[in-house]
């Protein structure tokens, strides 16, 4: 377990997340891709904190902030899914062709 292997793992998670966020048609699956990206980001932040940052507390704080971003992304995503479903009876990205109500 070195900084390099940890960062490689984070890069793999981010890569899979990019694939998911770009390829999935369902909103919830798309959000899963975004979550995987943030998962990799958090792992990289903790890895840097542990191996490169000499345990500076700001490193852990960054991870807490990413967690908050994740919670916000989930909540807003689900609210949008509900709003879109109410308007279009669908949860596919293709069914949204504009931002008109």
């Amino acid at each position: 377990m070195t900084l390099t292997t940890l960062l490689l793992l984070a890069a793999a998670l981010i890569g899979i997340g990019i694939y998911g966020a770009l390829s999935q048609q369902s909103f919830v699956m798309l959000m899963m891709g975004l979550e995987l990206i943030l998962n990799g980001v958090m792992l990289a932040a903790v890895a840097f904190w542990a191996f490169s940052g000499a345990g500076a507390p700001e490193g852990q704080l960054l991870t807490i902030i990413v967690m908050a971003v994740m919670a916000i992304e989930m909540a807003m995503g689900f609210a949008l899914v509900v709003a879109v479903f109410r308007g279009k009876q669908a949860d596919m990205t293709e069914s949204l062709t504009g931002l008109k109500h």
């Binding site: 900084l3 390099t4 960062l7 490689l8 984070a10 890069a11 793999a12 981010i14 890569g15 899979i16 997340g17 990019i18 694939y19 998911g20 770009l22 390829s23």
Partner: peptide, 17 residues
């Protein structure tokens, strides 16, 4: 999407290495 994922992994992995 697959291409973007692989490119993302390669760029970040190269940075790590």
């Amino acid at each position: 999407a697959i291409g973007a994922g692989i490119v993302g992994f390669l760029v970040l992995g190269a940075m790590a290495l």
